Amino acid sequence: MEGSDDDGVPQLSSHALAALQEFYAEQQQQETLKLGPEYDKFSVGSVEEDWQLSQFWYSDETALSLAKEVIEVCGENGRIACISAPSIYQKVRGLARESLHVQLLEYDQRFAIYGDDFVFYDYNEPLKLPESLEQSSFDIVIADPPYLSEECLRNTAQTIKYLSRGKIILCTGAIMEDLAAQILGLKICKFIPKHTRSLANEFRCYSNYELTLDRLA
């Protein structure tokens, strides 16, 4: 749900949204079959941004930079949780393949193509998580709440706090700086994430440690 550019997007009914997600999942399955066994599921591929879910994909350079950051932080045997950040997950998995434990917590069920790495996640129920996601079990959590609202950030923060055993990266609007500090104790970073398309709201990264990306800036 990367991008968080609009906190007032009209919402579908739960029934209509479920039907839409089922359609997307079937469409993605069919696309994968057409592409054949050589298809790289860790590529963005044909998964298009869905404005109903406030999705705005990161640029390739940003996604790769953040993926390298979290891999460096957690090491070879580390555990990474990507909350509402599928393009970062894709780059992490593309770089590390099966050597790291990576989970994608995401509402969009098109990403169920990632198998056991995918966990359905609804920020409205921040602690409704499978037993396999144990408390304080991830070396780093990187999150991109889908909407620029206090409720969305506070709820997502509950999930972050539950999963994290230490380091946190949050990607969201610059207008959320005070809340990010208040709720999660995060400071704004020098590194500025970019998207494949221009957003109306200024976008920033926040963390509770000094990013390698910032030291190189």
Rank of each mutant, 00 (worst) to 15 (best):
S132C: 09
L133N: 14
E76R: 15
E106S: 02
K68H: 09
V141F: 14
A81R: 09
I192H: 14
Y58V: 01
V141L: 11
S43M: 10
E31L: 11
I88H: 00
G8N: 11
I80R: 00
H101L: 07
L129D: 01
I192W: 05
S13W: 07
Y123H: 12
E125R: 09
S207N: 03
V47T: 12
T212E: 04
L105A: 01
K34N: 07
L33D: 11
R154F: 10
Y58H: 15
S198V: 08
C205L: 13
K187V: 10
D122L: 06
Y89E: 05
Q11L: 13
E76W: 15
P146R: 08
I168N: 04
L170T: 07
Q11Y: 14
V9H: 10
N208F: 04
E177I: 08
E177C: 06
V102G: 00
V70T: 08
I88R: 00
E22Q: 07
K187E: 15
S84R: 02
D40F: 04
K128H: 05
L179D: 08
P145L: 15
I142N: 06
S4E: 14
K190W: 07
E49V: 13
L184Q: 02
G8A: 13
Y147P: 05
D139T: 02
L105W: 03
G185I: 12
I175D: 06
A25M: 13
L33S: 08
A19M: 11
T212I: 04
L184R: 05
R215H: 02
K41S: 02
D139V: 06
L66W: 06
P130N: 11
L148E: 13
P145M: 15
D6Q: 08
Y24C: 05
I160V: 15
Y206R: 05
A81S: 10
P126T: 13
I188S: 06
S87H: 01
C152P: 13
F118T: 00
E125L: 11
L179K: 07
R165Q: 15
S14V: 14
D144M: 08
